[in-house]
Amino acid sequence: MFNYDQYLRITKFPLIWCPGCGDGIVLKSLVRAIDKLGIEKDSVCMVSGIGCASRLTGYVDFNTLHTTHGRAMTFATGVKMAKPDLHVIVITGDGDATAIGGNHYIHAARRNIDLTVILFNNHIYGMTGGQVSPTTPKGMLASTAPYGSMDHTFNISGLAQAAGASFVARASVHNGVQLENYIAKAIQNKGFSLVEAMSPCPTAYGRRNRLGAGVDMIEELKRDAVPYSKAKKMTPEELEGKVVTGIFINEEHPECRSEYQKIIDRFQKEK
């Protein structure tokens, strides 16, 4: 038994998420990771955008900021730059972070600012009823892609890595323990850290694509998961339809707020 209650706003329960939605599993892993690291609640600031995943901030007993669609990364940047002692954690969705907020996402990664981003990838716009997202796989159905999505998808983790993030990992809700471990490592890393959490949306994605209930989609994630170490030895054809999980990068490099502090300190010394 893990005592989640101390981190939750219990009076706001039950969660608004649908039966079988994976987002609650990510929430649990996140809470355990924070507990494992022994971080005080007052020093955590959680910032979210708009979407199903982003509703998470209403349920946790931290300094919480539910912002506008796509802009969570920018509010979080302001919080971190103004109060660097806070652990700033961004909660966002695939649409929130890589469609409307794509520019902020890559720039936050480029700055390597010390934010921990938990990106819930459910391949769809859940909250608005299942429109196509930048991560909807080719051929899959969405309410605005009735003949199947025709576009190439974003590799969300790859994008962060290419843009300059210092910690990037992907895990899936089928393995809550791995998710917890990656989130803990992401929080510990001083720099832009991404955990891409694969989470099923049975309501707006699963049903339309006949993928079954949430439990079936989790089973599928379990089957499709390939550890990064193994994936490295596989061909692109073999990796088709697989979900590569693991830590892709974990290398500290100069972080935005710390670099700025050096400039401030230069003037403090002069005084």
Binding site: T74, A76, T77, G78, V79, K83, N103, H104, H107, I264
Partner: peptide, 25 residues
Amino acid sequence: GGVFLQMEDELGSIGAIIGASLTGA
């Protein structure tokens, strides 16, 4: 001892100042 940030656009600029204000700045 203050912070100056050039953001990626104006959407980001106003987001950042709202976030920073919530910390008391």
